[in-house]
Design a binder for these strands. Structure first.
Lengths: 228, 228
DNA sequence: TAAAATTGGTTTAGTATTGGTACAAATAAG
DNA sequence: CTTATTTGTACCAATACTAAACCAATTTTA
């Protein structure tokens, strides 16, 4: 592959450096040698090197700062995005549908009094004013997180935290703004209260089905919003 | 891209130290040499060393305290190990109990013929010889993975892959060796067959309860093994 | 406890290095 | 030929590095 006698062009060099970044030869945040050094190394003029580096900067592989140098801005690990961030709202609802009803059952088995107290506090917050959809959304997230915490199962807590983290993503926020209104909030509050009551009454199946009903409502309002 | 003859810059030095921390050369909570010593060691001025250390502090690799020194605040293991790897087998079973029954329901909704074919292939493998517990364990993992894939929900697929990945960990392997024998394998095969039959018959609740029964058996054999 | 030594934090000014730019000549590609 | 790229050079501006001195927090020593 090496045509040693042949002079290298700007594109050849940018390809080489890009490969080296890909393979980890030059890692994230590492500094490239100075343009004059690279020119000497590749046996080309400085202008050619500059042209090559400009291409890489345009593709966000490098960050070039005058007087300072060129630094690798491409992070290999970050390129692998979490599936959570790629999931659409309906996929998330399906996942919650799988997990949260059973979380209710486990909450009754392992939940402490302080967890139920915390859940009640969040309920009070949500019921305070059905018009404040933003505050409702935050308290809602905390409600479901606390519910997961009450199971004492770190794996489930982690999964729910991953899922709820997605609610801060732009796509989800947009969907929420479309669906949340005073009537929906009032309905959600009623359903949350049903869940909490079933938990306190130590009725696992009642709590689970109350959760299913809640998630079914959420799914419906979501499909209705995207359908119109 | 090592230009060893050249004088080192702040970024070069921060890269070197970061690598040493990452490779465990300087352990968690260990103290770095004084800035003046490092300056002498790297043959640069103290300002350059300070600049390098500041970068590392910004990335939470170090904690610098005036008058006292710079201490490694980056915990290598904690950064790599995911919550899944810290979960114990019983927590994993609970999580699977939450998720997999509903996966059965979704598999009936979204599963294609090729998925069921693949499931049947793994069944054949598992039924081939109940004595080969090692091959059984691998096919078992693939069975549950394929089941998740048949839902078409990337989030659920990812969660299950995370959970099944934990089965290769020492703790889980140990527990499996304690519980798996010919009788258990035969029972598991029967239960797997029940699940698959329910899927093919398009009976969501039947499939879900077959899965619950399967996981209940797994949980029982696990507690029995740790109880003796 | 008090003094001394060590360590990081800061400032200052001078020097060296680096990327940014411009332009004419040489080379390559079509 | 024409056109585009590369080259070589010189200079500018931004940034990094050096060196020295002093301050403030902490640790060590007596």
């Amino acid at each position: 592959m090496e045509t040693n006698k042949k002079k290298l062009g700007a594109l050849d060099i940018s390809t080489r450096i890009r490969k080296e970044i890909f393979d980890g030869g030059i890692a994230f945040k590492e500094k490239l040698p100075a343009e004059r050094v690279l020119a000497d190394f590749y046996n080309v003029s400085r202008g050619t090197i500059r042209s090559a580096l400009k291409h890489l900067e345009k593709d966000h592989y490098l960050t070039i700062k005058p007087g300072s140098g060129a630094v690798v801005s491409y992070e290999r690990l970050k390129a692998i995005v979490s599936p959570v961030e790629n999931a659409n709202p309906l996929e998330l609802i399906d996942a919650r549908f799988a997990i949260e009803p059973h979380i209710c059952r486990l909450a009754i088995l392992h939940g402490k009094r302080e967890h139920f107290k915390k859940l009640d506090d969040y309920m009070t917050l949500m019921e305070k004013n059905p018009d404040h959809t933003k505050e409702f959304a935050i308290a809602d997230t905390n409600f479901h997180k606390t519910l997961a915490e009450s199971t004492g199962n770190n794996l489930l807590i982690w999964i729910i935290s991953q899922i709820t983290a997605a609610r801060d993503l732009p796509e989800w926020t947009k969907a929420r703004n479309l669906t949340l209104n005073k009537d929906i909030v009032t309905l959600y509050n009623l359903q949350h209260r049903n869940i909490l009551n079933a938990l306190i009454a130590r009725e696992p199946e009642l709590a689970a089905s109350a959760m299913k009903e809640h998630l079914e409502t959420a799914r419906l309002s979501l499909t209705r919003a995207s359908g119109t």
